[in-house]
């Protein structure tokens, strides 16, 4: 794609053209030949939007909350990026988050559903790029919904300025496996489905955990919501705004974004290296090393060491 054409797409997207924005997102989602250019172009204008991550157990109410948040934000052009897992067997996915959002959001809200598409680590680079594109197109806030089941998903949600972790009454058992991971990334807790018994109990559990664990000068507040009724959403938005201003005043925003970009670059290096690793194994030197491994003359570790040296010399030559 030519640079003027790309400029035109961005210009359309900025003026609210949904198709243009939709197409730009497809390019970064596919990480195709245009993706680097799109990302580069977006990066120039990005950094304006507040990025909010919403994560939590499956079915906890993330989409309902996210849709409501976009509505109460009062923003002119909020955007939602809703991420769902692809089936590892077929690569297909049912992206069903919109169904819980559509009734609550206005037509100025841009919603994009994204499947994880299985490629190892791919999500880690596609999502920041998608957020970047939405940001550069003038959307604000950008709310990212992910299921907080695995480490990757939690990391993705945590790649936000403000991370909201959603739990429900009796949540402790449901997310036992990843409790620590979720607790660690939370800037704000939501106990959703407060219409159900023992929402207060869930709040108490969280308070106790925060008493034990929290560090630093921001203590994650706990908000009770009944998202289906819209109850508590105003309070949640207030807490998000309070966190936003904390981020600004403390200098934490700059530090966070800096950390985020560092890990994004690291993720990209990792992906690139993995690609090259696979290629090098298949090329001549790789093949002869592999033959020796098969003959038990060379250990896998030694083979890796040897091939790695051809990828990255220990002492890089001066340019």
């Amino acid at each position: 794609m030519s640079a003027p054409l790309l400029d035109e797409l961005f210009e359309s997207a900025r003026t609210g053209n949904r198709r243009a924005l939709g197409r730009l997102l497809t390019m970064v989602e596919r990480q195709d030949d245009n993706a680097v250019m799109v990302s580069e172009r977006a990066h120039r204008d990005a950094g304006q939007a507040r990025v909010i991550g919403v994560t939590g157990a499956p079915g906890s109410g993330k989409s309902t909350i996210t849709g409501r948040l976009a509505a109460v934000s009062g923003a002119a052009r909020p955007a939602i990026l809703a991420i769902d897992p692809s089936s590892p067997l077929t690569g297909g996915a049912i992206l069903g988050d919109r169904i819980r959002m559509d009734n609550n959001v206005s037509s100025s809200t841009f919603i994009r559903s994204m499947a994880t598409r299985g490629h190892a680590g791919g999500l880690a680079v596609a999502v920041p790029d998608a957020v970047r594109v939405l940001d550069a197109a003038g959307c604000d806030p950008v709310i990212v919904e992910t299921v907080g089941v695995g480490q990757v998903e939690v990391t993705v949600a945590a790649a936000a300025d403000t991370t909201v972790v959603v739990v429900t009454p009796g949540w402790g058992d449901a997310v036992q496996a990843n409790k620590a991971g979720l607790l660690e990334v939370a800037d704000i807790f939501v106990v959703n489905k407060a219409d159900r018994p023992d929402a207060r109990g869930a709040r108490r559990d969280l308070e106790l955990m925060l008493d034990l664990g929290h560090r630093g000068d921001w203590r994650a507040p706990i908000v009770l919501t009944t998202a289906t009724e819209g109850e508590g959403i105003d309070d949640l938005w207030s807490e998000i705004e309070r966190h936003t201003s904390y981020l600004h005043h403390s200098g934490e925003l700059i530090r966070r974004r800096c950390r985020r970009r560092r890990s994004e670059v690291a993720d990209r290096i990792e992906l690139g290296l993995r690609d090259r690793a696979l290629r090098i194994i298949d090329d001549q030197s790789g093949e002869s090393a592999m033959v020796r491994v098969e003959r038990h003359e060379l250990s896998p570790a030694a083979a890796a060491e040897q091939l790695l040296a051809t990828l990255i010399p220990d002492n890089p030559p001066e340019e």
Binding site: R18, R19, L21, G22, R23, L25, T26, S86, G92, A93, I94, L95, G96, R98, I99, D102, S107, F110, I111, R112, S113, A115
Partner: peptide
């Protein structure tokens, strides 16, 4: 395939909007 499920009570406008956003 990736299925973007909109479910019940949609309008031609809401479907067009979803198509554009979802490409």
């Amino acid at each position: 395939m990736e299925v973007i499920y909109l479910g019940l009570r949609q309008t031609t406008d809401s479907i067009v909007a979803a198509c554009e956003q979802e490409d």
